Computed example of a mutant assay.
Amino acid sequence: MGKKEKRTPLYSQVRDYVMDQIRQGKWKEGRRMPSETQLSKQFDVSRITVRGALTRLVEEGVIYRVQGRGTFVTTEGLEGEPVRYEKTGNEPQLIAFMIPRVDNRFTTSLLNGIDDELANSNYRMLLLRTHDSQKKEEELLHEAVRSGVKGIIVYPADGQTYNETMLRLAMDHFPIVVIDRYLRGVDTNCVCSDHYAGAYAATEHLLQLSHREIGFVTTVFTGTTSLEERLEGYKQALADYGVAFDRRRVLDSAVPEDIRSFLSEQSDLTALFAANEGVGLASIRAASAIGKSVPEQLSVVFFDDYDHAEDARIPPTCVSQQGEEIGRQSAKRLFALLERPIQDRISIRVPARLIVRRSTATAPNI
């Protein structure tokens, strides 16, 4: 265990190798260095890891790049050398926060939590939005490393896999923390809500109101661990209260027409648990569209709170995630990795809280 923690992360090995070649006089001033491809093969790391190491050396004024010619050891007055600034050692350093979008209370609170934690540090945030596209996510990871960020916090795009760049960065011990979800079988530092316990509490709330015909509505959940865990929490609560799980009670579509059809076909449902705010609000509208009143005929509870929810026509019962705490914990975990990149990867679970309002009531005919 102790020996493992003394290992140098791979991107630092590349940087140290370049510095040693220069100090020993093997690479003279003005010498063109090996290409990123050559260095990645030499160290058996990804090009993005090599690029990150070289970017730091450029920032330090040790090397410089010339478009179309390559990377060179610094020589004063050489044509093409960029202007270098005298550094005091106190300049703020960048970390990247990658997120699908910032459009609801949870994502905004994540941003606030990270920013609050950075406020008293020497780090500043580079915010990058992926629009839930794994292709865009991979492009932005490359952009972040080229920008010289010291670490990355990622709220991954939906999907059954992480992109290859994220995996390589994690394998190379580049400081990276994943929030909200993780990939089964892949060892990463992760900070997320306790999705299972939150879903269990929501379903148990309905069961304690004497509901037994309870549906589950979600977006496509396969491969997205946060949604898979919410389904498992729902199923376990049913089992603990002696209610058999029925796959026909699960709808994995957020399309309004599909929800209306689902509620019409499952006409004996008295309650719904929805996997997120968007699906939950769509379910309330769908119930109204087919003439089912909430909560008199159909109780609805969903994951994620939203601004001014208590002022809604039907104030919703929901599971509220502690976004700011998740943001703070992810930043703290990243700080620990920046101090010591080689250490055991851990998963941090932040409790979610059930907020009971007026979209749930005792089951009809009870």
Rank of each mutant, 00 (worst) to 15 (best):
K4R: 15
K6I: 15
K6D: 13
T8R: 10
Q13V: 14
Q13C: 12
V14D: 01
D16A: 15
Y17C: 13
Y17I: 14
D20V: 08
G30M: 06
M33S: 13
S35V: 10
D44N: 11
A53G: 05
L57I: 00
G61E: 00
G61T: 03
G61Y: 00
V62G: 06
R65C: 06
V66K: 01
G68Y: 02
G70K: 02
T71R: 07
V73C: 09
E76G: 13
G77S: 08
L78P: 11
E79I: 08
V83H: 15
E86S: 11
K87D: 12
N90T: 12
E91F: 03
A96S: 14
M98I: 14
V102I: 15
L110P: 07
L111E: 08
L111S: 13
N120K: 13
M125F: 10
L126S: 14
D132Q: 05
Q134E: 11
K136H: 07
E138M: 04
L141V: 11
E143G: 10
V145T: 11
K150N: 09
G151M: 04
Y155M: 11
G159E: 00
Y162H: 11
E164C: 06
T165F: 07
L169N: 00
F174C: 05
P175A: 07
V177T: 09
R181H: 05
R184H: 09
V186Q: 08
D187C: 09
T188V: 06
C190N: 06
S193R: 03
D194R: 04
A197F: 04
G198A: 07
T203W: 02
L206A: 05
L209R: 00
F216K: 03
V217K: 02
G223M: 03
T224G: 08
T225K: 12
T225G: 09
Q236N: 14
D240L: 02
Y241P: 06
G242K: 01
L251F: 07
D252Y: 07
V255S: 12
V255L: 13
D258E: 10
R260F: 10
F262Q: 05
E265G: 10
Q266V: 11
L269Q: 02
T270E: 07
T270G: 12
T270Y: 03
F273Y: 15
E277N: 07
V279R: 01
L281C: 09
S283V: 08
S283K: 02
R285K: 15
E296G: 07
V301T: 04
V301G: 00
F302M: 14
F303T: 01
Y306P: 10
D307T: 06
E310M: 13
P315D: 11
S320R: 02
Q322H: 13
Q329W: 01
A331N: 01
R333T: 10
Q343N: 09
D344R: 02
D344G: 08
R345T: 09
S347D: 06
R353L: 12
L354D: 00
R357T: 06
R357Q: 08
S359N: 03
A361N: 08
T362F: 03
